[in-house]
Design a protein around this nucleic acid. Sequence first.
DNA 1: ACACAATTTTGCATGTCGTGCATTTTTGCA
DNA 2: TGCAAAAATGCACGACATGCAAAATTGTGT
Lengths: 232, 232
Amino acid sequence: MHFMTGKDAVGGGLRERKKRATRAALAEAAVRLAAEHGADQVTVEAISAAAGVSVRTFFNYFDSRDDAFVVVDADASERVRQAFLAAPPELPPLEALRDALAAELREAERQHELWSLHARVLRSAPHLLVRNLGAQMADESGLAEAIARRIRAGDDSDDAGRASEPDAGAPPEGDAGRAAPGLYARLLAAVAGTAVRVSVQHWCERPDEVSYADVFREVFDLLAAGLPAPAR
Amino acid sequence: MHFMTGKDAVGGGLRERKKRATRAALAEAAVRLAAEHGADQVTVEAISAAAGVSVRTFFNYFDSRDDAFVVVDADASERVRQAFLAAPPELPPLEALRDALAAELREAERQHELWSLHARVLRSAPHLLVRNLGAQMADESGLAEAIARRIRAGDDSDDAGRASEPDAGAPPEGDAGRAAPGLYARLLAAVAGTAVRVSVQHWCERPDEVSYADVFREVFDLLAAGLPAPAR
DNA sequence: ACACAATTTTGCATGTCGTGCATTTTTGCA
DNA sequence: TGCAAAAATGCACGACATGCAAAATTGTGT
């Protein structure tokens, strides 16, 4: 219940939809109240009242009060995975992932005002910022799995059996659909998440000097180049 | 009080030393109790009793109960920064950072048993794992600043004035000692932290197949090569 | 349209968490 | 040794978080 299973990210049933609506309403109420009165002045009772549900229901959706401030869009990571897996197979993994993330970030611009408030809340409450960072990374496991699957897929489309690198996308033993991601997949997922985070952070401090797209591109260029010492 | 200022990482005063001792005692008690009874069964009262202080004192050291499970060694990041800044100036930033981290990780092997317990606790409590991940990343700001400083330092040692890249280690305007880190410094700090985390995670799941040093080296090789699509 | 099963919401009771404040104890220093 | 600063403690109180059972809502089959 507390952990979205990814299937309901597209959600057809009326029930699922309503649940996601209440969850979103609670999160939005929490962010708006926190932006106005300060995060630690907002009680669960106030959030629940603003969302039109009981206090007890709040705890049916969030494990703790702070969780309501931490997650903005619970389904974002699922969408990124779908976009990544739908990318043309000949694209290098890093580029495919970059484009999938860029698409999602453009989509997020639509909710710009709420995101801005959310950023303000996190900036004024280091405690919550830490939780947010941790939550971002929790999504990595799923992304790493998708990367591993994509690598396996592009694998047998080329030529099947061959002596393979000792530890590429996924470990050799695998039930070909849900094997534990290998070192490369894990690392790529983690680095991509890091790239998003860093570019957002950097851009948030200088919204006027450069466009976000430029920062985003520069970060991925640096990564693709192997983080060389900065040219002088 | 709650945030170590880095100065007391080396700690000369008796007062500082005792504070760090009690803090360490509380953290260790928390981890050991959690490893035995499960994290959510451990009350603050139990932790405080095991460490020989009052409940109220516990909250003088930690903002919340969970914080006691999250941080293992509060001074580790400070030591890494020192080691990084002490590295020979001709080393590329990525390699200097890699070596500084490797040294700290070798040092951490000394407390292997406690670290192992801590890992078990985090694995059995996703809630705490997320907090731990977030806490790791909170150290990045300091590291990014150190990187920016090092880049500036190696800068005027070579040849001073020249048309510089628009956004290298640090933004142009800087009070030459505590300027906000630039995009490159931020990214390098973040990626390095990610590298440690991913290598540890990956190795923890396969402690027998390969040595940690090998995983660690492979990760940094992949990063230095720009995360190329895995060879087949 | 209607009833029924499944799911969700809600109120209540209970225990723990977390903080402010005044007081007592400890520590560093002259 | 005596004194000022810092830390530890006890206490009180509000908020958080969970289990449980009753009430309300939704989807489905007839």
